[in-house]
């Protein structure tokens, strides 16, 4: 996890910092994905300006970078919420009721389908940018299915009733007029 101050400062890396990251990768194999992942680790998403800087520095057309960023599920192209909630939608979790968890979370967080970006990725962020909700295909924690991850913490054997309690740990407030 990158240092807290980097996240809280709210602004993104500048050209020099980006070039530093690029410089880490000497060999061409797999370097583009690694560079973008490293940038996202700090900035939490890839902004247009960032992609432009990468495009110029690496001499890769912006169209290609954009294509890559929108192809791979890993990359966020829109700012993300403070806390990211990921529901595992793997087979074992599905078979133990993950879909119900996702529905309930959507209702509790009051996020709707309109959160999808134009590249069609499922990533819903609350209005106050407190939470972002997305899904993952499998964390590999099938023995404790169904699994929900908030930031880096993994919760297992989650039932619908556990969700408000878990969300409250991250500052979620239940709405009075529901």
């Amino acid at each position: 996890m990158p240092p807290l101050f980097l996240i809280l400062r709210g602004w993104l890396m500048d050209r020099q910092q980006i070039e530093e990251i690029i410089g880490k990768y000497k060999h061409p194999e797999g370097k583009i994905l690694s560079i973008l992942e490293d940038i996202q680790e700090v900035d939490r998403y890839l902004s247009k300006e960032t992609l432009k800087v990468v495009s110029e520095t690496l001499n890769i057309p912006l169209s290609k970078l954009f294509s890559i960023a929108t192809f791979y599920s890993f990359f966020n192209l829109k700012p993300v919420g403070e806390h990211i909630i990921t529901v595992c939608m793997g087979t074992a979790c599905h078979v133990r009721g993950a879909a119900g968890l996702l529905n309930t979370l959507e209702n509790l967080l009051k996020v709707s389908e309109n959160g999808t970006t134009e590249d069609g990725k499922f990533f819903l962020t609350t209005e106050d940018k407190h939470f972002s909700l997305n899904t993952a295909r499998c964390f590999g924690c099938c023995s404790m299915a169904p699994v929900v991850k908030v930031d880096e913490k993994i919760y297992g054997y989650v039932t619908v009733n556990d969700l408000p309690r878990i969300l409250k740990e991250y500052g979620w407030k239940e709405d009075e007029n529901r």
């Binding site: 169209s63 929108t70 192809f71 134009e118």
Partner: peptide
């Protein structure tokens, strides 16, 4: 020219 590209997946 590389103006356009594929966006997204599937």
């Amino acid at each position: 020219a590389r103006v356009i590209s594929f966006i997204g997946r599937g």
